[in-house]
Nucleic acid binder design. Structure first.
Length: 441
RNA sequence: GUGGUUGUAGCUCAAUUGGUCAGAGCAUCGGAUUGUGGUUCCGAGGGUUGCCGGUUCGAGUCCGGUCUACCACCCCA
């Protein structure tokens, strides 16, 4: 029987790779002082529909329990985070820096870089309105990739700002919230669809005062801006009133500060201003970013941004927050591509082989060594010839082989073979543990 | 959810136009080797060719359906 579509089996070698990812993520998050938390793997369905709307249900593993409760496997961690920490926001330390490594589930068609069950590294800063939070999260995202040996040759951060986009639309007189959302979602698929289709959709959305063609060309120009100066120049081509100019000046100043802080954090090599990133869902309120392989092959390695209104929406209490998530599927693909995931090999310290009469003695010794934190194997079942046992022992490549024979026991000795230098020592039976303790140091 | 490609042993792959085609290597287990050394040699197990149906004297091979995987859409929290 096979696993369900989009679900994976983790045999020892792939499980070890997965755990290596988890270890790296956890290590780096702790370096930044983020605290690990976790929540239930399933939540009330309502938690997800409140945040994302009813349409989300057909993308969820949603079902009813035997008590008729509507529930769903978690497709992301942010709603749980808001639920858990929204309970006592008033007493929450600010800022609170949180991370977790969770299995998540989305009912979608599996394809490259996307499965139905996957793991994500989530990091969030709650209770910090300043851009220092964005800077630190982007730095954390970059460091979590650097940890595995990836450099600016392999990946980069595309940094954008939904507030700039709102200002841009405002310059065209577009302020209606639903309309802004519609155009932002159009921006999200801008380069994946033919120009004519985009213009057609724009013509339907835009107020009659704005020509689709004009808007498209100007927006196309803004999308390609690589610097803040270019963005400023782009805006200045539009007729903007004093209020808008001042708002733009302030926002560009914030953007500049963020870039500056990222430089101080040693991330200038990784970060590119890139307004083509807007991110699909509407709850992002400010800076947004996505990490990609250089050349933009494949899906995003990580993505996130500021969501200052989500707490209020779900708990009625306002609370600024920024977060990102990085998935294991795209990262594993990338690391495999550059051979940055080591081959897994079980590490055994000691393999015991013994003559039939010495079995109990060998097992006693094995257990003493295990209690001293050494990994120890010995053959199971019917005792075979020493030569056969040794064959098995060598396959495991232990650091040492312990040999127990009747003849050695009669003299109170065992043999300790060191595979590294092919030497054999004769050691007193009672000293074995002490000898290994010394070896360890 | 829509379209395209695909499927042979645990893994990687063979099998002429439909006709001894169900095979090899790796891996696993056993023996050679009745007591201190891996690499050698020999052998064994393991597949209703994804599943269901159809065409045919005969299907791994052709046709239809279905499922999986992959790719492109939709979506991407």
């Amino acid at each position: 029987m096979e696993s369900l579509p989009g679900f994976r089996d983790f045999e020892p070698s792939t499980c070890a790779q997965r755990n290596a990812l988890f270890h790296g993520w956890r290590t780096v998050a702790q370096r930044f002082g983020f605290e690990e938390f976790d929540g239930p793997i399933a939540e009330p369905l309502e938690l997800f529909t409140q945040k994302s709307g009813e349409e989300i249900v057909n993308q969820l593993f949603a079902f009813e329990d035997k008590g008729g409760r509507k529930m769903a496997l978690r497709p992301e961690m942010t709603p749980s985070l808001v639920r858990i920490f929204g309970k006592n926001l008033a007493t929450l330390k600010k800022p609170t820096k949180l991370f977790n490594i969770t299995e998540q589930f989305r009912y979608e068609r599996p394809q490259k870089g996307r499965l139905r069950s996957f793991y994500q590294f989530n990091a969030d800063i709650v209770g910090e309105a300043s851009l220092s939070a964005e800077a630190e999260l982007i730095a954390l995202a970059a460091e979590s990739l650097r940890y595995f040996g990836l450099t600016e040759e392999h990946f980069y951060v595309r940094l954008s700002d939904r507030q700039l986009w709102q200002l841009w639309l405002k310059a065209f007189g577009i302020t209606d919230e639903a309309l802004v959302g519609g155009i932002l979602s159009l921006l999200d698929k801008w380069e994946r669809r033919p120009k004519e289709d985009i213009e057609k959709d724009l013509a339907k959305l835009l107020p009659s005062s704005v020509q689709a063609k004009t808007f498209f060309d100007a927006t196309e120009q803004l999308r390609h801006c690589k610097t803040l100066e270019a963005i400023k120049a782009c805006f200045s081509q539009q007729a903007t009133d004093a209020e808008l100019s001042e708002a733009l000046r302030q926002r560009l100043s914030e953007f500049g500060k963020l870039l500056h802080e990222l430089s101080a954090l040693g991330c200038e090599k990784f970060v590119a201003v890139d307004l083509t990133i807007v991110r699909g869902l509407a709850y992002y309120t400010g800076f947004v970013f996505e990490l990609f392989e250089t050349g933009n092959q494949g899906r995003a390695l990580a993505g996130g941004g500021r969501y200052d209104q989500l707490f209020e929406k779900l708990t009625r209490h306002p609370m600024p927050a920024v977060g990102f998530a990085a998935g294991d599927v795209t990262l594993t693909d990338l690391l495999n591509k550059y051979h940055l995931l080591p081959e897994y090999k079980r590490k055994i310290d000691v393999f015991c082989v013994f003559e039939e009469t010495e079995r109990d003695r060998a097992l006693r010794c094995s257990q003493m060594l295990r209690r001293e934190n050494f990994s120890v194997l010995y053959p199971f079942g019917e005792t075979k010839m020493l030569s056969k046992q040794l064959k098995k022992a060598y396959v495991e490549q232990p650091r040492y082989i312990l040999i127990f024979t009747q003849e050695l026991s009669s003299r109170g000795k065992v043999h300790v073979k060191c595979l590294a230098n092919e030497t054999t020592r004769e050691v007193g039976s009672e000293e074995v543990v002490e000898v290994f303790r010394r070896e360890r140091d």
